[in-house]
Simulated assay, not measured.
Amino acid sequence: AFSSKTSLQEAQTLLDGLTDCRAPTKTRIVAEMWGKLLQDIEPVAEIPLHLLYELEDLLKDLLEQTLYMPLDWEALPENAYEILRNLLHTRTLLENSNLPMLAWSKRHGELRFSCLDASHEIGNTIKQFGGSLLMSATLSPMEQFAKCCGQNLVSSSLVQAETPWRKKAYRLAIDLRVDTRLKLRTLHYTTTADTICRLADSAEDCVVAYFPSYEYAEGINETLLNFDSAPTVFLQPRGLSLAKQNEFLSNALNSAKVLLLIMGGSFAEGIDVLGGHVSHALIVGPSLPVADNVQRARMARLENLDSEAAYHLVCREPAITRILQAVGRMVRRPGQKATILFHCQRFAESHYQGLFSETTPEYIRTDEGMARWLRTL
Rank of each mutant, 00 (worst) to 15 (best):
L62R: 00
N221P: 00
Y363F: 13
E247R: 05
A193K: 00
P334C: 03
S266N: 11
K26Q: 13
S119R: 06
D61H: 08
L76K: 03
D117C: 08
E56R: 11
Q245S: 08
Q39D: 15
L67V: 14
L58E: 10
S105W: 03
E143S: 09
L84T: 12
A200V: 14
M69P: 00
P164N: 11
S357F: 05
P334I: 03
I340G: 02
E121M: 11
L199Q: 07
S136C: 06
I122A: 10
G109W: 02
L249E: 10
D61R: 08
R185H: 05
R198H: 11
R298M: 13
S202L: 05
P164V: 08
E10C: 00
S266E: 14
L288E: 15
L49H: 10
K337H: 15
N221Q: 09
L158G: 01
A230R: 12
A203L: 06
V208T: 13
H343E: 11
Y311T: 14
S132Q: 04
N96I: 11
T125N: 10
Q353A: 10
G123M: 09
D194F: 02
L99C: 08
A103F: 10
C148W: 07
L158A: 05
D72F: 01
V278W: 04
T186G: 00
L71G: 08
D272C: 04
S266A: 15
E46T: 15
A200E: 12
L224K: 02
D117W: 02
L288Y: 04
E358G: 01
N86R: 07
S307P: 00
G17Y: 02
D272F: 02
I340R: 02
V233F: 03
C206T: 15
G328Y: 04
K147L: 12
Y189N: 08
N98V: 05
